[in-house]
Amino acid sequence: MDSAQSLQSAHAGHTAHAAGALRASRTLRSLRSIKRRDNFTGYLFLLPCFAFFGVFLFYPLAKSVYLSFQITNPRGEVAAYAGLDNYASLFASGAAFLATLKATVLFTLYTVPAGIVIALVLAVMTHAKRPAMKAFQYAFSLPVVISAGTGAAIWILLFHPSAGMLNYFLGLLHLKPVFWLADPKWALVSVSMMTVWMNLGFNYIVLLGGLRGISDDIYDSLKLDGPGPFRSAFGVLIPLLSPTLFFLLIVSVIGAFQTFGQIHILTKGGPMDSTNVMVYRIYQEAFVNFRFGSGSAQALVLFAVILALTLAQFFWLEKKVHYQ
């Protein structure tokens, strides 16, 4: 009897174990089915985004890679296979390529630091939650809604050699007028001044949001401790703003290397190619000279330069970012 009962007990335990394993297997299959269904639903919602990027980003990138190895006719049709000749001719140009690269780097150095510093100063001065600050915040944010064409039309009037406001103020200071857009020494500086003003709205909004994200307790402790404005700025606020500044630096550098609108309207790359940055040279090569193969090669070189600069910034500067 004891052996029979033990066998029945063992059989019942085995049956219960098998039933439990079956239920666990069914539960696992059900969870996998739910996960697959959720993944399918998620990808279904992302499909319009993938289609948009595929049409307007990935396909043009692949087309540029393809055309960079070809010689094209004025209609953009492939005429012959060029191999690496387009890249070789670009680097063989030597002085012309270096002059374009120098103008682009100088334009970036003129616009990025100045734009961030000015926006940071304005954000620090107006971040207090007071009704009177609303008007200043609105005024400093306004350039973000102005297009490059509208901004260029405004600054053309300011840069006018005889009727412009800038030379008028120089005259009040008994200084000689400056031919802002016609002098090779001043043309790039002039375009940079307009670009700093145009980017001020975006930079100001981002930095103001970063300052608003800092706890009020920190501001209160700074008022009580009284370490001084410079020590408060460089010892507390800037380290806390470092993620915002890091993001803004990367975006600003990429934007500076891609600047086109104001240069096309104000100077068209002149005078004497002093404002002929890389993007405008690509435009001239592809849509003025109709050498789409060479223009595509230059666009890919520009992409490589921007990618290298972005990776360098992540490698060297992200270590100094203090994430909260």
Rank of each mutant, 00 (worst) to 15 (best):
L7P: 04
A80G: 12
V251H: 02
F246T: 04
A19W: 02
M272F: 05
I118T: 10
V206E: 09
T72I: 04
Q313W: 00
A19Q: 08
W197E: 11
S3N: 15
A119Y: 09
V305E: 06
L248T: 05
V301S: 13
V145H: 00
T100V: 14
F303S: 13
H127S: 06
V145Q: 02
A139N: 06
I254P: 00
F179T: 12
A182Y: 11
A4W: 04
Y219V: 07
V236M: 04
S252C: 06
M125G: 08
S33Y: 14
Q262H: 07
A286M: 11
V191G: 03
P271W: 02
G76K: 04
N203H: 10
S3R: 13
K63Q: 15
K185E: 10
T244Q: 06
L172S: 10
Y323S: 01
W180L: 07
L61P: 06
A132Y: 15
G293V: 05
Q70P: 05
V236W: 09
T310A: 06
Y81L: 07
H14P: 01
K319N: 08
L90G: 02
S64N: 15
G54H: 10
A139S: 14
S221C: 15
H322A: 14
N199V: 08
L28K: 12
V236L: 06
A135F: 09
N39I: 13
A10M: 11
A114S: 11
A10C: 00
A233R: 14
V251I: 14
H174A: 14
L172M: 13
T111H: 10
K102I: 01
A21F: 02
V277W: 03
F97E: 06
Q258Y: 00
C49Q: 14
A80F: 14
L208S: 15
A119P: 00
F91I: 03
H14R: 15
A24D: 15
G269L: 01
Y43V: 10
F97V: 07
H17T: 08
H17N: 12
L240N: 05
F230A: 13
G54C: 06
M278I: 15
V253T: 06
P131C: 06
P177D: 01
T108R: 02
G115N: 05
W197Q: 12
Q5K: 14
F287I: 08
M165I: 10
H17P: 00
G54N: 07
R36M: 09
